[in-house]
Design a protein around this nucleic acid. Sequence first.
RNA 1: GGACUGGUAGUUCAGUUGGUUAGAACGCUGGCCUGUCAAGCCAGAGGUCGCGAGUUCGAGCCUCGUCCGGUCCGCCA
Length: 597
Amino acid sequence: MQQNHFLQRTVTCGELTHADAGKEVVLNGWVHNWRNHGGIIFIDLRDRFGITQIVFNPAISQELAEKAAGLRHEFVVSITGTVILRPESMFNPKMPTGQIEITASALSILNSAATPPLHINDPDASESEELRFIYRYLDLRRPVLQNNIIFRHKVTAEVRKYLWTNNFLEIETPILMKSTPEGARDFLVPSRMNKGRFYALPQSPQTYKQILMVAGFDRYFQIARCFRDEDLRADRQLEFTQIDTELSFITEEDIYRVFEGMMVELFKNCLGISLSTPFPKMSYHEAFHTYGSDKPDIRFGLTIKDVTSVFQNSEFKVFKSTIEANGKIGAIAVADFASCTRKQIDNFTSLVAKSGAGGLVWLRVNDTGVEGPIQKFLSHEEIARLLELTETKSGDMIFMVAADEKVCFTSLGQLRLELASVRNLINKDEFKFLWVTDFPMFEFSEEEQRYVSVHHPFTSPRLDELDLFLSDEYFKTRARAYDLVLNGFELGGGSIRIHDSLVQKRVFELLGISELEAEEKFGFLLKALSFGAPPHGGIAFGLDRLVMVMLKLDSIRDTIPFPKTTAGISLMDNAPDRVARKQLDELGIQLQEKYNS
RNA sequence: GGACUGGUAGUUCAGUUGGUUAGAACGCUGGCCUGUCAAGCCAGAGGUCGCGAGUUCGAGCCUCGUCCGGUCCGCCA
């Protein structure tokens, strides 16, 4: 039976130092580890604040030592004792509290614990994520994971502090909202009172925050939960948290300044790192053609060179047919990598194949020119120009992909990341921010056979391209959109919005959304924009991902207390789950036969 | 929807060419041990080899299916 009354702690397990020697204290916590020497017994007592060593000495109390001998991992105890300065030879330099220990005078066991299925006290333990999810409450006891969650709290607190002091109002928006076309698949919530109708969970509070600007709140932010019913990844969960913002009477420059300032504060106060501003900017076009990505990692070089022009009259069939089909040939040069093995090349080849490339051409640079399987198809002039464009020297390695433009650069972009990791070119202690700007407004969707928004349909076209926007070549228009990229991760993105209902209508029209549908789905926004909407824009940052990058973690699951598996399942509580027939009846919902078992 | 990868003791893993009783470490239980901090020493318990078929005299190992974890592609305005 549990005890109703216990001695409450006077101090935590992380705060005692040599200055506290001699004090009488009470500590509450978990048995992190125990060491029984037959006589003397040591207990490492843990709470969120740290670990303190407790000593039970039979010379002081035989009875107490016998009781302590029964303590096991993860028992919950209350311990009374005296803070003792350890002799210097017994200091533990690995522990912040390693100069002191507690000589116990009383012990009360508040709760026992079953043998834990995880090695909570082993920082190097590597239980499967499956097991860690099932016993998430135990996993979360680990100092490492606990620090991630505490760090996330700090980031959130610093974000609030910064935005509050910069005139932002923290405002909540609905979780139950209207389903809108465009973008990710919505999570739907059936309405009992309005059978046959559904709410959607927000993919982002986009329309609400714009309407808050129309309403005159000027600057808004929200630590907002967002939901997207799409497949998961190491850096994507079904629900995630955005630092969502919107500002009135601003331009891109204000966004850059305000949020560079936010990052400076976050990195200073959470990591003790000072960032220098302004962050560099790069157009989407440059990012794509030199890094093969819209979120380039600029901590290292290995840039992609467009070498199509070199092979304009090539005898090599693959290059010739690619150029005839209006494709591109891109190259990456790797310094001093002529030692590259056949096996590595095979790996690189299958890597670019994943992005759709038909093959990977490679050439070793030597004193007389190049060597490789396709060298015999290349003229002296082509080789000379290639070496010049790629700025290579003897001992270097050149990789090339010939394909349509998108495949060519994206596959080389993937290869670039792999090469950086193989060649160990990434300084993991570096944080390199980058604004990517000048995204196109539209891109053609093969699947839907129409143009779709690159960012979202509320993004303003560039003012200097309004003529283009209104012309037949509207699809070439660039958007007033921007992404903040850090070390190859998209931390956030946003845009200056359309605040003119006529421009907004034109976008819907170009996206193939009929006037009727636009009215039905977005009529409320169009109407709002017609009542004197201020120029406005905003940006949203992925909090989970930000924390992940700041802590150099491999997955956002380690920044989230209760994440879901790649199948979208919460293993601890088994959500989603079947529901009672009665619940479905109340909603007017019937399952398809095959899902009834 | 697809590709790859993993699933063996409570946990992390090993398990040869298909062959006797499936091993190790940590944890757990018991014993010894008065200064450890990954304590040490001795002993013991602990297995539906994810699940289901199949091949075979014989399957942890081979084949097929299936479930689960993970990585990636598609998807993610």
